[in-house]
Nucleic acid binder design. Structure first.
Lengths: 139, 139
DNA sequence: TCCTAGACTAGACTTAGTCTAAAAGAAGAT
DNA sequence: ATCTTCTTTTAGACTAAGTCTAGTCTAGGA
């Protein structure tokens, strides 16, 4: 599995120091950061990096299809570099903890033809919600 | 199928004129409005209604479980009064058009036990994306 | 080394939504 | 009917997330 920086360079995307720091921050994460969290962490390594660059860079990586933009909570967007393996998300309604999960079968099969309204359907994302062990125990 | 105003009154929720206008606006819609669109339409019938009231009222209806809050595009939230029949959403990536859709089977079955991370999973929402007929033809 | 398209920066701006403090309105007690 | 109390509504200030702008800088090719 190639890392994000490698994938981006293979697409001959201009690799500036700022972009590298952002890509490495994203790729090293085991949780899905918000743009602000990425800015904060990137600024730890490159203090003069600007907010606009972080947003521009993230949006470009999303447009290239190398990073996924997640809208899990309706507040800030989160970014997920793991586009290689399709996965979905499981969120705790108590504490907001988020896990990547895999479904059995292909979600596209769950939508019958007569429910497609003539659309060419290309992808499906599923958000499962519930309570994690800690929050369930606390309630 | 009872309408939203009736359901809310059955729960002995204080039905003020403002709340009635908001509930009726929501319930009469065949698309999912944003809070701002609801404010705009409610203000057509009751010009002095305030933005805070619209937000407060929508949030309370969501807390009561009588209205669903949707996060389909990552910009503004949309509100869906149709909580009686479980459904999911299909969105055109070209023009943003949104359709309610129904899946075959129960999405909860697609998440095996060993992918649940100890969570008590209670619900699943699926967002299908693709291109509507018009946008597919235009591209 | 020089040039230039593309990238970066600070900070103003926009959008969506929340908060606050005061005024208005409804419900029960007398 | 009037008083008291609790809830709801209001205008507008405030916050958070993200975009835009105009000027500066730089990566990478000639």
């Amino acid at each position: 599995m190639s890392d994000l920086v490698t994938r981006l360079r293979q697409r001959s995307w201009r690799m500036t120091p700022q972009r590298r720091v952002i890509a490495e921050t994203l790729d090293g994460a085991h949780v899905h950061y918000t743009a602000d969290e990425i800015l904060e962490r990137a600024a730890g390594r490159m203090p003069e990096i600007s907010r606009a660059t972080v947003y521009n860079t993230l949006n470009e990586m999303v447009a290239l299809g190398e990073v996924l933009e997640l809208n899990l909570d309706g507040r800030s967007k989160r970014y997920d570099p793991n586009v290689e393996h399709e996965h979905h998300h499981l969120i705790c309604e108590g504490c907001g903890a988020t896990k990547d999960v895999h479904t059995v079968g292909n979600p596209m099969d769950w939508l019958p033809g007569d429910e497609r309204h003539g659309f060419a359907v290309t992808r499906a994302s599923i958000t499962f919600r519930g309570l994690c062990r800690e929050c369930a125990a606390a309630s």
